[in-house]
Design a binder for these strands. Structure first.
Lengths: 221, 221
DNA sequence: TGAAGACTTGACCAAACGGTCAAGATGATA
DNA sequence: TATCATCTTGACCGTTTGGTCAAGTCTTCA
């Protein structure tokens, strides 16, 4: 009984191995640059075996993209409709940054898709992402109308948050190179997170930035 | 004159055609995804003719990347060492945004490079870009010490500016899709520029954001 | 235990692609 | 015009790659 309820354990395990390898290889080489042979090697299986589980490279890619989108949706839901923009924005930015840290490859696959005009995810962009964006813009507009934040363009703010948080995944090679070739330490990453939150919150008029504590120069603050 | 004074007009014109086509095709399909056949078609020449001017696909790609880097450097120089961070940051952000608008393909080729771990531009990253970054960080630190802006992490600020401005080029397909499938109008783009400048400047404590609409007219425009 | 299905894999194939080549066309120079 | 260098191009070649296949091995369960 316990065995027949799930699809065979072998199948589940091999699909997992292949999907994991595929995400990593697609992220680094793109759809065209990745070969099913590389993915199979990475998963420790012969190529023919990979094609037994996923008939075509495209089908495998689609599955990878779908998984990535599910993770994106989870973070998206942290941007909920609460009354306090400080809390909502902080939580959302932190969630996005955490994903960039824990799932950089997913973000890279997404970036590759958009760069190549979204041949596979165009649907998601037009439907789910479009609707999600519209509702959050409405929330931000309400905050602005309530005087809880400065009247900036909500769409511009969202794009800025996406761009910045995803930059830490998509461009991590550049960031590492500029960090003497070493990946950011947990401490460095925490500092980066805090910087992003701080600039955004001050940028939209919540929790304004303070100048140097010295207050000798009493102009901007 | 000696034979090597000027390369023939034919050569100059054909190289230009090919480089133009190559930038566009590499941007959309990546290095691996692009084929010399596609580039040749795009340039209106037979493939063998392309290989007469550029012996290999990689050599052509290198030339494209070099041109892109030159343009990047020009914008980089607008971030000069002036005393006023408001002026310097505004000018730099605007320059970067303008490049994203006028040369989106160059930015995409760059993004593709980084995503794929910079197989060709690693040199630039380690030398020119690294040095440039260090000097600008020093400038920002000085501004902070002088109480001209809030004590945020300068590196985090630079990454945020890069990420956001380049997002308007690299992710323009997503942005267009979320804009009912149409490219941003000049007016929309100008608004985006202003939003970025405004959030960054307020975010670092220069020109703080104002809340309610009543007395907020004094900024922007 | 034996048969039916699930899984594995080396060998193979056709298409696509980067690059070559040789034969000719065109342009410059004296 | 004669000569030489530059340019053009269809045909071709070796390699890579996505995908197939048939001949196996292993699992499950009546």
């Amino acid at each position: 009984m316990s065995k027949t309820t799930t699809k065979s354990a072998t199948r589940a395990e091999n699909e997992r191995l292949i999907l994991e390898a595929a995400e990593s290889v697609f992220a680094e080489y793109g759809f065209k640059g990745a070969t099913t042979g590389m993915i199979a090697d990475h998963a420790g299986l012969p190529k023919a075996n990979l094609h037994y589980y996923f008939p075509t490279k495209l089908a495998l890619y689609r599955q990878v993209v779908e998984n990535i989108f599910r993770i994106w949706l989870e973070a998206a839901n942290t941007f909920d409709d609460c009354d306090d923009p400080e809390e909502a924005l902080t939580r959302y930015i932190n969630a996005k940054m955490d994903i960039s840290r824990s799932h950089p490859m997913g973000s890279k696959v997404w970036a590759n898709e958009i760069l190549h005009k979204a041949p596979v995810i165009q649907d998601y962009l037009e439907t789910t992402l479009g609707e999600w964006t519209d509702t959050r813009i409405a929330v931000i507009e309400r905050w602005i109308a309530q005087g809880k934040m400065a009247p900036i363009d909500p769409r511009g703010l969202l794009y800025m948050i996406w761009a910045t948080t995803q930059h830490y995944a998509d461009f991590n090679h550049q960031i590492d190179t500029l960090n003497d070739g070493k990946p950011l330490s947990d401490q460095q990453f925490a500092k980066a997170k805090q910087t992003v939150v701080s600039i955004i919150l001050a940028g939209v008029g919540i929790r304004p930035a303070r100048l140097v504590v010295n207050d000798a120069i009493g102009e901007g603050a």
